[in-house]
Amino acid sequence: NKASVVANQLIPINTALTLIMMKAEVVTPMGIPAEEIPKLVGMQVNRAVPLGTTLMPDMVKNYE
């Protein structure tokens, strides 16, 4: 099973992601793959992301 990106803390709306906000975890359903973490740094979330939430592509602005 591949790990996904999971919020390590509450991430407020429009916050630019940093490494300490994210962790890799095997979850179902899968979200953004953990190997994308370096690419996510500096990208903004378009909603508040609660602690423990799996990051999905539609939660990150301009994620492709």
Rank of each mutant, 00 (worst) to 15 (best):
M22Q: 02
V26H: 13
V26N: 04
V60T: 02
N1W: 13
G52H: 12
V41W: 05
I32T: 02
K2C: 03
M22G: 00
L40S: 01
I20C: 03
G31R: 03
T54S: 10
K39D: 06
N8R: 07
P29Q: 09
G52R: 10
R47G: 10
M56F: 04
G52F: 07
A48V: 15
V27W: 03
T15Y: 09
P57D: 08
I11M: 09
V41T: 08
A48H: 15
E25M: 11
L10W: 14
M21A: 06
K23F: 07
V45K: 00
V60K: 01
A16E: 10
A7G: 13
D58E: 09
L40P: 00
A24L: 04
K61I: 06
P29W: 03
A24T: 10
A48T: 06
I11Q: 00
I11T: 01
P38Y: 11
T53F: 06
M30S: 08
G31S: 04
T28Y: 11
M22P: 00
L40K: 00
A7V: 15
P33Y: 13
E36K: 08
E64Y: 05
N46I: 06
V49H: 02
P50R: 12
M30W: 08
N14R: 14
V49Y: 02
I32A: 02
A7I: 05
P57L: 07
S4P: 00
L17P: 01
G52Y: 09
E64N: 07
K39L: 15
G31L: 01
P57F: 13
K61V: 14
N1K: 14
K23I: 07
P38G: 07
L51T: 14
T54V: 13
T54R: 07
D58V: 06
G42K: 08
G31I: 02
Y63R: 02
V45S: 06
N1R: 04
Q44M: 13
V41F: 03
N14F: 12
E36Q: 15
L17K: 00
K23T: 07
P12G: 07
E35S: 10
N8H: 14
L40D: 00
I37K: 07
V6F: 03
A24H: 05
A34D: 06
A24R: 08
E64I: 12
P57E: 12
M21Y: 05
L17A: 01
N46L: 14
I32L: 13
N1H: 12
Y63H: 13
L19R: 06
M30C: 03
T18G: 04
A24W: 05
I32K: 01
I20W: 09
E35A: 04
R47L: 05
T28C: 04
I32W: 02
E25C: 03
Q44L: 14
M43A: 10
E64F: 05
E64M: 12
A3C: 03
I20A: 06
M43W: 10
K61P: 13
N1V: 09
I37W: 02
E25H: 10
K2N: 15
K23A: 11
S4N: 02
V49R: 04
M30Y: 11
K2V: 13
P29L: 14
Q9M: 12
T15M: 13
V26C: 03
K61N: 06
L51C: 03
E35H: 14
Q44C: 02
E64G: 13
I37S: 10
N8Y: 14
L40E: 01
G52N: 15
N8K: 09
Y63P: 03
K23L: 11
A24Q: 06
P38T: 15
M22T: 03
N14P: 02
Q9C: 03
I37D: 00
E35F: 05
N1D: 15
L10P: 05
P38N: 07
A48F: 10
V41A: 09
L10E: 07
K61C: 02
L51P: 06
M59D: 04
M56H: 15
V27R: 13
M59A: 10
V27G: 08
